[in-house]
Computed example of a mutant assay.
Amino acid sequence: MARYGYARVSTREQNTDAQSDALARAGVEPDHIVIEKISGKLASRPKLDALLSKLQPGDQIVVTRLRRIGRNHQHLLDLAAWFEEHEVDFIVLEQGIDTSTPIGRLYFRIMAALAEFDREAIVEGTLEGLAAGPGPRPGRWPADQALRTPARAGAAHVRRR
């Protein structure tokens, strides 16, 4: 079993010292800390991909915060599934997640389910709004209806009655 740490910052000007120090305090050897300076939104993270390719069953990957490793909720869910499939434990220091324990796996699954629910609720609300269209609606304030018309869409302000 090996314990690896992953630290990431978005720009070259940012410093990973705080993350590296926290990973070292968590028992990650300095030569097992992978540092990446790349935007969190990018799909390709070469150093993370290289780390994942060398993990073996029983290994652990440690990060300081979820947002250091995951691009978005779906990416976190995909990583969690990958870790489980490959029998790799995932530890998030600041959120207290440790999938090497039964309660840690439960906690992470609950957090992942909540994240997925949140994402689906946002998508559902967006689709409902798009389906409703831009036209006036009964029961809305006249100013709200005026804002929804194409002629008023660019208006700087709307006078309310």
Rank of each mutant, 00 (worst) to 15 (best):
F108T: 11
P136K: 14
D31H: 06
V158M: 02
I69R: 01
L76G: 10
I103S: 14
D49S: 02
V123D: 06
A81R: 10
L48T: 07
H73I: 15
Y107M: 11
D31W: 02
E94L: 05
G104Y: 08
I61N: 03
P57Y: 11
A155R: 10
L147P: 04
W141K: 12
A26M: 00
T149V: 09
A153F: 15
R3P: 07
E84D: 05
D118M: 01
T99R: 08
A121H: 09
V88C: 04
R65M: 05
Y6E: 00
D21V: 11
I61T: 06
D31M: 02
R140E: 15
E36Q: 09
D59F: 04
A26E: 04
G40H: 04
D31R: 05
G96F: 13
D118K: 04
D17G: 12
T99K: 05
F117G: 06
G139P: 00
I33D: 02
R160T: 13
L51E: 00
Q56Y: 03
I35G: 05
G104N: 09
P102T: 07
L23G: 03
D31G: 01
R68I: 03
G125W: 08
L55Y: 04
R152W: 09
D98K: 05
A50D: 06
E84N: 02
S44I: 13
L23Q: 03
A156Y: 04
A50E: 10
R160E: 14
Q74A: 12
L48F: 08
G70A: 15
L130P: 10
G96H: 12
D49Y: 02
M1A: 14
A146G: 03
A22L: 08
L79R: 06
F108Q: 13
L114H: 14
S44Q: 08
P150R: 04
G58F: 11
K54H: 03
G135P: 10
S100R: 13
I61K: 03
G135N: 02
Q14A: 00
E87K: 05
P57E: 09
E116T: 01
R109K: 15
P136F: 13
A131I: 09
H32M: 07
D144L: 15
R140Y: 15
R25E: 09
H86N: 15
I97F: 07
E124H: 08
S39F: 10
S10D: 06
R105K: 14
